[in-house]
Design a protein around this nucleic acid. Structure first.
Lengths: 312, 312
DNA sequence: GTTGCATCTCTGACTGAGTCAACTATCCGC
DNA sequence: GCGGATAGTTGACTCAGTCAGAGATGCAAC
């Protein structure tokens, strides 16, 4: 159960942060809370006492005393707020600013020396993983992603391989397909990579929060004036956002623009979720045929869409 | 600079943990430190006072008092350690155990309600990212990985695609090769996946800490009795551990075992790091030829290794 | 304008988490 | 058996953080 793992991570990270500030030399001569106040003052443009209190969730009396001490030491100035005489505006003096910078510097150094123990090649993985933790945990408070958070773009280096990898892994996990399928995807991708007409054939990657979560390919079919939609895939975690819809839509639009008369695709009946998707875009099922592939018994389906009636 | 990102993550995560324990109802009627002691007592088999002190890095006097209070409340028993009368062994009483479980339960609940805001599909990503953060940051304190931490195994679903992806991305980043190369890799992988002799052809994945960091393939060549080593790759971050050496070694051994007479490979002179590797295993350079591929000018090299003199 | 209630800040009084130093008892190496 | 380290206890202290109350002001209702 992931609750255990998270708690374990919490203990780990709490210890880590504790170790970073071994014997709190980091904050001297201030306390952790005082440092937080200084940091906030240095980084936040809104600096009424009430704002500080809200931001750092401190006791009003405690904060008042901290600021009084800061004022005495010449780190801050307290002036009445113009729009509400009950409030007081707090601003750092130059001296306060250097104090904040000193603390900042020390913290940067401590983190830097921690980071120095991490091989350079791993740092990218580290920051990426941190970003993921943050994104996922903030997600609860943030609005869920929508279809228009998704960016459709062409693949960058490695992403054709990503298509192979994810097709192979997802269909193996969901339907038990064997490596034959992954091989088929690799061949389709290879054909595309090594020889495709950039005007008439294209691959789209759906990107969400900077990482690929879906793909689709449009290539010429044997029949003249016909395009084939292939390798439509949306990551399980990104389903339900309308990404598949946008990918199919992109292909249909592309096929229309560049002048294909017809768009066809081959799929299997176990991919039931995609069925309404194709129908919504006007595809019609024209043939079904049982076959054995990828280590399982399947029913293949041919779908067709009349893209435009006029000839090319 | 990643120091900034880590500090930012620290602030984020500190706040998160703080929010988890809003108004410290989590620990009541104990303090955070007391809870940590209880947790440690409940989860660690070694429970001398000195061990506790080391594990939690607490002040000796402070801990002594905490334990005295626990004893008074009937949560623990303190008995002299048999092997060193200075030491005292601390054990939880049944009552102490239920207290620890209550705290545990509360903490689990708090984390659980945090986790409830995370969509189920994201949880796996979250725990994976946490594991990564942990692994990378522990690495500094842990011994660096060695070649024998690496496991060579056959690929699982999706990993043929991984080979394509990483080959494409790494060579694009390091040498500027274009998608032609990724396509070539995809074709090699496709050929392998769709039709290979499981006794005479094989792919190895090098796994480090549970994730793939390298690969190599051995397939039959046109010439009879000849095997070809292909797609040798080690992730930049995992280089210098001797992984390439083990991969090449695995191929050579495999070729010898199944009875190939000769092992050949084709590479390019820009891959200078691999050169001593091949030489060490007895490969000799037999031909060089300039060519233009993957969008750049290269010098291809053919290498050869006599695996065994006797005929098959 | 006044009344009632909320908000902002400050002060005094307090709690209690954590630290430091001194002390005793024991272990270990020589 | 001596010197130095280690284990645990106790007393004295510090200071981060909390709580309650007071004075000043804002805001809305009458």
């Amino acid at each position: 159960m992931s609750v255990q793992e998270i708690r374990s991570f919490n203990r780990f990270y709490t210890n880590l942060i504790g170790a970073l500030d071994y014997s709190r030399h980091l904050y001297a001569p201030y306390t952790l809370t005082e440092s937080r106040v200084l940091y906030e003052l240095a980084h936040s443009p809104r600096t009424d006492v009430a704002d500080l209190r809200g931001e750092l969730s401190l006791d009003a009396g405690y904060l008042s005393r901290i600021l009084a001490k800061f004022e005495e030491d010449g780190l801050v100035e307290r002036t009445p707020s113009e729009r509400d005489p009950r409030r007081r505006r707090v601003t750092l003096t130059p001296r306060g600013r250097t104090a904040a910078e000193l603390l900042d510097e020390r913290s940067r150094e401590a983190v830097g020396s921690l980071l120095a123990t991490v091989p350079a090649a791993e740092r990218e993985r580290l920051t990426a993983a941190m970003a993921t933790v943050r994104a996922v945990l903030s997600d609860g408070t943030r609005r869920p992603p929508r279809a228009d958070d998704v960016l459709l773009r062409e693949p960058v280096a490695g992403e054709l391989g990503w298509i192979v990898q994810r097709n192979g892994a997802v269909y193996a996990a969901e339907f038990g397909w064997n490596a034959d399928y992954e091989g088929l995807v690799a061949r389709i991708v290879a054909d595309f990579a090594q020889d495709h007409d950039p005007y008439l054939e294209r691959v789209w990657i759906a990107e969400l929060d900077g990482r690929p979560v879906g793909c689709v390919m449009c290539v010429r079919d044997e029949a003249p004036g016909t395009a084939r939609l292939r390798l439509l895939l949306v990551e399980p975690e990104a389903r339900g956002l309308g990404i598949g819809d946008r990918l199919v839509g992109a292909v249909v639009e592309f096929a229309r623009e560049v002048g294909y008369r017809e768009l066809v695709l081959w799929t299997n009946d176990v991919l039931a979720a995609a069925r309404p998707l194709y129908q919504r875009h006007g595809f019609v099922l024209v043939a079904e045929k049982a076959h054995r592939s990828f280590g399982v018994d399947l029913v293949g389906q041919d779908w067709r869409l009349q893209v435009q009636s006029g000839a090319l």
